[in-house]
Amino acid sequence: MEFSTIDAPAQDTQTMVSVGLTHEMPSSTRMLLAGDGSTTVLLEALVGTRLRVRVASQQLVPFTRIPKSIREALAADGVSCFVERRSELHSSKNVVVSRNRVISVHSGFEAHFPAHDTKPIGHRLREERLPQAREMLASGVTLASAEFDSRSCAFKEYVINSPSRSPLYVAETFNPDVVRCAPLRQIPGTKERHEFQR
């Protein structure tokens, strides 16, 4: 296993550092990051309550707003328009458990996942009882995440492939008060995104 560096997308303001699964973090966090099933189900087991989604935005965006690496992961490098959804998963006590970004080609997305729906995408997919596979892209700990008060947070990125629809790119950043991880120090001059190649 070795590290590789990839230029970070211009619109990404946080540096993500993947540290594998040997970093000093609780076993529950390591299991969450390593899991290739429904993250929503794992988070509900961790917090002990059902989660609901609050969609902050769901809009069509041109391909120029989507990093080439994501377009390639979706096998959609020639697509001109995508749907970008930004959302939060909330506990029954209204604690923000994660902040998420979902990207897909626009065809059929709104019909399957309307912005007003409070049920997480993970649950909607499970209800269909169709085969699906999650292709892990990266996981680890962010440096100075803008999502949670500039604190280090656990994150994971993956693509959900299903025969019933176009692939979904999912990036999740977890509230460090819920999904614990040891803080990382800022790396001086870091401008790249480092991903651990499995």
Results as ranks from 00 to 15, higher is better:
H123R: 14
S80E: 11
I6Y: 11
V102R: 08
I70P: 07
R134T: 01
D36Q: 10
V79F: 05
V19R: 05
P183N: 09
P67E: 00
V97E: 03
I66D: 04
P67R: 03
K191H: 02
I70G: 00
R129I: 06
T29W: 04
A154G: 03
H194Y: 12
S162Q: 09
G48F: 10
P62M: 10
S91I: 04
F113Q: 03
R86I: 00
V17L: 12
R71H: 02
A10T: 13
L89F: 01
V79H: 09
R54S: 10
K68T: 14
A154M: 08
H106D: 12
R85M: 02
R54D: 07
F196R: 12
R193F: 04
L184G: 09
Q59D: 12
F63G: 01
V95Y: 08
A115N: 06
T190A: 13
Q197S: 09
E172G: 05
R193Y: 06
M1V: 15
E128L: 15
V41G: 13
S87R: 02
D177T: 04
V79S: 05
D117S: 14
K68I: 15
A171I: 09
A73R: 12
S92K: 15
Y158S: 13
H23G: 05
S104W: 01
K191I: 10
S18Q: 11
P163S: 00
Q186D: 08
E72Q: 07
A182P: 06
T40S: 09
K119C: 15
D177E: 06
D117T: 15
M1W: 05
G140K: 00
L143G: 00
Q132G: 05
T22D: 07
F196I: 09
N161F: 08
V159H: 12
S69G: 07
E172P: 06
R101M: 05
L184V: 13
V102F: 02
P163Q: 08
I103M: 03
M136E: 07
H106S: 04
R30E: 05
S38V: 14
P163E: 03
P131F: 10
E192G: 13
Q11E: 02
M31P: 03
P188Y: 06
L89Q: 03
K156I: 13
L60A: 14
K119T: 15
V95S: 00
E128K: 14
S152P: 06
E88D: 02
V97Y: 03
V141K: 06
N161C: 11
V105H: 00
R180Q: 10
E2Y: 01
F113K: 01
R54P: 00
